[in-house]
Structures are given as structure tokens and as C-alpha cells.
């Protein structure tokens, strides 16, 4: 790590003024991503600003619109095991519990989870070109070993994926991100929070300098009856998704009233395709229909030398997960395949 100074921000304004005044003053919450990045010299800090003492952003409570507000500083574990989340938003619990390890989830915060950076090996190796780490230096992954990389939403400058599991569920739940900053407070729809790389892959999201995530709102609809999270990876646990799928279904008289499906591990942000979800409306929840949806979601997918397998894998994972969603009790620890 570079030599930095350290301070605890006791209120929001202090944190905001420290980071808006200097791009190299960095916030630290759980520390599980930023300390790792500092150790590799991928991130450098002048001052590390500890936000854990900021009051008011570390609770889970009902919001004004019948949904739930989860504070940015609540840990991933406390969120996943919270009684309201387990009951009304079990998809979010499952997705969180499929990520990282028990120790990391006890440290990682909800705000930090949204802002974790890619696990692209070249992003992590400061001796190789990487447009995300060093804009303009080139992308080592496009011609390199790209097994864990994107098949959707990538650009000629970057093919990295956004690695979060929690965010795949937040995408399906149409969460809203609450942000405070040097200007006015604002709320951003989850689908507008993260961004595609285009020719500026250095920004993963639309958070502006000096801004701080205060909370995440979950609308009332939690898909607590028919939901599933499936995570496919190289080991059974404690590794990032090659492909993951979150599904929430609403059924009426045996037909699909509403379907939401998001993919993780395949794109620079959780991937949803509205037409593919709309296609399922009024249809029977059966394999043939889910297969047609999967085709639509993967439309335009482009793989690279080592990750083409993800295209077929994602289609099969979508179908499997939609079937699993019909019987959530079948789900296994760590979001492994069931049924």
C-alpha cells in the first residue's frame, strides 16, 4: 500500500467534503475490496476516510412507499439474515449468501458491494495494459486469457464483468440507490447506476466525485413466492460467478403474470432484457417458454477465445433457474443447481 493518512468521518458532510475536494481521498467501509486494491497498488490514497461512524445509514427499516430501505453501512451478512429480507426478499438473501465467504460477508457493506471493482486478472496485474486501470493503455484481455470475461455489453476498450452477486438480485427487484453528495441528494434507478464501458471503461458506474451511497430502497414487490438464484462457477463455493441468474416470477391461475430475469458474471452490469421478460407474460411456466426467453436474453452475445462456452451455459442456466423458481424450497446452500 502507498503511504496514506487516515481519518474517521463522524458525519456525512465531512466525508463528502473530503472526497469532493480530492479525488485521491477514498472512502473505506468494510474494506474488503479497497484494502485489496491498495495492497496491489491498483488504488492509491492520500487520505483514507473511514465512514463506519456516520450515523443514520446502518439500519434496515420500512420506507415511505411500502418497501424497505437498507442502509449503505449494513453488512451483507446482516442484510441477508435480516428477518424482513428473509421473509419478503428471499431472492436478495440467497444472492448475497452465494457471494464471497461468511467472513467477508460479515465485513462487506451494501454500499461497498455496489462499488466493488472487476476481478479481471489484467486489471489486477499492474504490469499489464488495462484501459480500466490506466485509460488508453489498451486491453490485455481481448487477445489474452478471457475465461471470466463478458459476452454481453462489452466494448472494444474493455470486456470485464461486474462481479457482484447481490446486485443481480437488486436488479431483479428494481432497487433504487440513494445518493448524497456535494450538490443535492438524488435517487437513481438500479438499472441506471452501473454503466457499460464504451470508450471510458475507467468508470464502472454513474456515481460522481464526492458522492456517497446512503441507502438502497427495495420496492414492495419482493417475489417471495417464486424466486431463485443460481450461481455457476469453477468451485462449489467461495469463487466468483462464471454465470449467475436471478429470477422472480409472479403467477396467476397457473400462468406467468410477471417475470424478471437478470444475469450476473457475463456483462459489465447485471443484464436484463425487457422484451424477453414481456414475452413470458400470460404464458405457461414451462421449459419451452423459458428456452425462448433465454434465446432472447442472449441475443447479440459475443464471446472471445476462452469464454464462448458462457453463451450456451447462460441459456441453460436461465431455463434451469426459472424452473427452480417454481419451487424455491428446493434451493441448496450456495445457490447450487437443484431440481
Amino acid at each position: 500500500m502507498n503511504n496514506f493518512s487516515f481519518t474517521k468521518a463522524l458525519d456525512m458532510d465531512t466525508a463528502i467534503s473530503l472526497t469532493s475536494g480530492n479525488d485521491h481521498n477514498k472512502l473505506i467501509a468494510g474494506g474488503t475490496n479497497i484494502i485489496d486494491l491498495l495492497k496491489y497498488f491498483i488504488t492509491e490514497a492520500d487520505t483514507l476516510v473511514d465512514i463506519n461512524s456516520i450515523p443514520g445509514i446502518s439500519k434496515i427499516a420500512e420506507n415511505e412507499t411500502g418497501g424497505i430501505r437498507i442502509g449503505a453501512l449494513v453488512t451483507n451478512a446482516d442484510t441477508a439474515y435480516h428477518a424482513i429480507i428473509e421473509e419478503k426478499y428471499p431472492l436478495l438473501s440467497k444472492a448475497i449468501l452465494a457471494g464471497a465467504s461468511a467472513q467477508i460477508r460479515n465485513m462487506a457493506t451494501n454500499g461497498g458491494n455496489l462499488l466493488q471493482r472487476t476481478r479481471c486478472y489484467y486489471f489486477y496485474d499492474i504490469h499489464t495494459p488495462c484501459n480500466k486501470r490506466e485509460p488508453g493503455s489498451g486491453c490485455s484481455a481481448i487477445q489474452g486469457y478471457n475465461r471470466i470475461h463478458a459476452i454481453l455489453g462489452h466494448s472494444e476498450s474493455c470486456i470485464a464483468v461486474f462481479p457482484s452477486d447481490m446486485c443481480v438480485a437488486l436488479s431483479v427487484l428494481d432497487a433504487v440507490v440513494h445518493i448524497s453528495g456535494p450538490e443535492e441528494e438524488r435517487n437513481v434507478a438500479f438499472s441506471d447506476f452501473h454503466r457499460l464501458p464504451g470508450d471510458t471503461p475507467e468508470s464502472d458506474n454513474n456515481l460522481k466525485r464526492g458522492e456517497l451511497i446512503t441507502a438502497i430502497d427495495l420496492p414492495e414487490k419482493g417475489f417471495s413466492k417464486y424466486y431463485s438464484y443460481l450461481k455457476l462457477r469453477d468451485r462449489a463455493s467461495y469463487s466468483f460467478a462464471l454465470v449467475s441468474v436471478a429470477t422472480g416470477l409472479d403467477l396467476e391461475n397457473g400462468l406467468i403474470k410477471e417475470a424478471r430475469i437478470a444475469l450476473g458474471g457475463v456483462s459489465p452490469k447485471p443484464w436484463r432484457v425487457k422484451e424477453a421478460e414481456d414475452f413470458l407474460k400470460g404464458k405457461e411456466p414451462k421449459i419451452a417458454n423459458f428456452e425462448a426467453t433465454a434465446q432472447m436474453i442472449l441475443k447479440g452475445a459475443k464471446g472471445f477465445e476462452h469464454n464462448r462456452f458462457k453463451i450456451e451455459l447462460a441459456k441453460k442456466a436461465i431455463v434451469r433457474n426459472c424452473m427452480m423458481a417454481l419451487d424455491p424450497t428446493s434451493q441448496r446452500a450456495g445457490a447450487k443447481p437443484s431440481l
Binding site: 474494506g31 484494502i35 467477508i104 460479515n106
Partner: peptide, 24 residues
């Protein structure tokens, strides 16, 4: 953060001592 060898208990919860700073 990738192996768990540094696990300690902080207020009874298991956490990784390599991914946090002593000053925190």
C-alpha cells in the same frame, strides 16, 4: 481475503484480519 487463515472474532463475528486496518 482468499484463504481464511487470518480469521479472528470481532465482537463474536468471524472476520478477516488481513482485510481491515488496525486503526479501524
Amino acid at each position: 481475503g482468499q484463504c481464511g487463515a487470518c480469521t479472528v472474532l470481532i465482537d463474536g463475528k468471524r472476520k478477516l484480519s488481513c482485510l481491515t486496518l488496525a486503526v479501524m
